[in-house]
Amino acid sequence: MSVPVVIRKIGRAYGAMQALADVDLEIGAGEFVSFVGPSGCGKTTLLRIVADLEKPTSGEVKIGGANPKEVRRQKKLGLVSQRPAVLPWKRALDDVKFTQKITQRVGYPADQLLRDFGLEGHERKKPGQLSGGMLQRVNCASAIAHDPELLLMDEPFSALDEMKREEMGEWFARELETRPRTVLFVTHHIDEAVLLSDRVVVFSASPGRVYEIVAIGAPRPRDRSFRESRIFIETTARLRKMLFQDLEAGR
């Protein structure tokens, strides 16, 4: 199950400060779309508007034809936050089950999920006993434990080291093969965005606008060799140029 997302004329102002202006995006069901851009470009704000954590000043979002609030009430949203949103007193396994208890939806067996995230043997540890990277993986597991149809990810792997980051990326890629779902993914890592996405949306800052949308025309599954492919190298180079030259110059 997955849903399309339509973002129409979204604007968001904080007082006199315009964070987002005229953002139009259409995201297909099962599509993986990354948001990249300089800090302050409003990409996290856009994600929070889709998640019904914030209201837009103008425009509207439709998820499978419904308002974000309705979709949230149907417990079809999943959010992987930048910092772990785990409960300090819960053991890893209990934290994953907590999501399932609240939503009354069991997407995956909790223990299997933790194993897939490389946390075998750590299921009964509390947050205080886990490393930062492990904690972020528990966070990911808890965020998708109820199998949400729309997954919103806000720099989810930024606390992980390079190796774990790649492993997590691969796990997600595999997982999306078997159970396709729509994903909105905010990241600073161009490599990660290219590796995982169907399309990469580049935002410009002040106010945040869509600067360009780059499609990654590579077939799935993408294994490690994809990183050496021409598409990967060319696309990342093009995105880098956009972010570090064109957009910087435009400031």
Partner: peptide, 23 residues
Amino acid sequence: VDPIVLDRMRILDASLWEVFVKV
């Protein structure tokens, strides 16, 4: 309570009572 945990509870559509008692 860490606001990020409150975000999580909202996304999961937890009731006010659940937020109170469990968080």
